[in-house]
Simulated scan of single mutants.
Amino acid sequence: MERPAWDQKELTVGELSARSGVAISALHFYERKGLITARRTSGNQRRYPRATLRRVALIRIAQRVGIPLAEVKSALDELPDGRTPNRKDWERLSRTWRDELDARIRMLQEIRDDFSDCIGCGCLSLDRCGLANSHDRLSDHGAGPQRLTSYHS
């Protein structure tokens, strides 16, 4: 597929897919979820504003680091007139998401540190479990590996 001209105002779904590296089916999904929008031609073909490339890039970056699409949509919905995020918007979003990612990293480090010593009181560490779960207090929280799964709450 031919690369869209740098000054082209609108892109077909194929051009947007080729330029962004995102499958057409994913672009349709993003559109259904309200993350991106397209106008329809008289022949019912989608035409995306060129700025959609930046929106798709932001969506993909957020997905790559585990930001839920619903949260991405909320952030994009806060932009006036549905505009594409600019540098200031990105700085604000990345700062917010950075705090969330730092918290997730801390949680994963705690899980990693507990992982080698404890199955999470499921319990395969009976010889050491009295130190981590004396008197089986974790059973009050339900069956299974409570220590490691409780990080997801």
Results as ranks from 00 to 15, higher is better:
Gln109Trp: 10
Gln45His: 15
Arg46Leu: 07
Glu110Arg: 15
Asp127Val: 09
Arg64Glu: 13
Tyr48Glu: 08
Arg95Phe: 07
Leu93Lys: 02
Leu58Ala: 13
Cys118Gln: 07
Ala132Asp: 00
Ser134Asp: 11
Ala38Glu: 05
Gln109Ala: 13
Arg47Asp: 11
Ile67Met: 09
Arg60Gln: 15
Ala103Tyr: 01
Asp114Pro: 00
Leu93Thr: 02
Arg40Gln: 10
Leu131Gln: 09
Arg112Glu: 15
Ala70His: 02
Glu100Pro: 00
Arg104Asn: 11
Val56Phe: 04
Leu58Val: 15
Asp117Leu: 11
Leu131Met: 10
Arg95Ala: 15
Arg106Asp: 15
Lys88Ile: 02
Arg112Cys: 09
Gly43Tyr: 10
Ile59Asp: 03
Arg92Pro: 01
Cys121Phe: 09
Arg137Val: 10
His135Gln: 13
Glu100Ile: 06
Ala132Trp: 00
Cys118Ile: 10
Ala57Asn: 05
Phe115Trp: 12
Leu124Ser: 14
Ile111Thr: 07
Leu131Asp: 09
Leu76Met: 09
Glu110Thr: 12
Leu53Val: 12
Gln109Asn: 13
Arg104Tyr: 03
Cys123Lys: 09
Ser125Tyr: 12
Leu93His: 12
Asp99His: 13
Leu131Ala: 13
Gly34Ser: 05
Leu126Pro: 03
Leu79Arg: 04
Pro68Asn: 06
Arg83Glu: 13
Leu79Ser: 05
Gly34Asn: 06
Asp117Tyr: 10
Ala75Cys: 08
Arg87Tyr: 02
Pro68Glu: 03
Ser74Met: 03
Ser116Ile: 11
Thr96Lys: 15
Ala75Lys: 04
Thr37Tyr: 09
Asp102Ala: 11
Ile61Asn: 03
Arg47Pro: 05
Arg137Lys: 11
Leu93Asp: 01
Val65Glu: 03
Glu100Phe: 00
Arg60Cys: 10
Arg83Phe: 00
Arg39Ser: 13
Ser116Phe: 09
Ser42Cys: 01
Ala70Tyr: 00
Asn44Ala: 11
Glu110Trp: 09
Ser94Arg: 09
Ile36Lys: 02
Thr37Glu: 13
Gln63Asn: 04
Arg137His: 14
Arg87Trp: 02
Val72Ser: 01
Cys123Leu: 11
Arg92Trp: 03
Val65Cys: 07
Pro49Trp: 01
Gln109Tyr: 11
Asp117Thr: 14
Cys129Gln: 11
Asp99Phe: 02
Ser116Pro: 00
Leu53His: 05
Ala38Gly: 04
Val65Asp: 02
Leu93Asn: 02
Gly120Ser: 05
Leu101Trp: 12
Leu53Glu: 12
Asp136Gln: 12
Thr37Ala: 13
Asp81Gly: 07
Arg39Asn: 09
Asp113His: 12
Ile119Leu: 08
Arg112His: 14
Gly34Trp: 04
Arg98Gly: 14
Gly82Ser: 08
Asp113Lys: 13
Leu79Val: 03
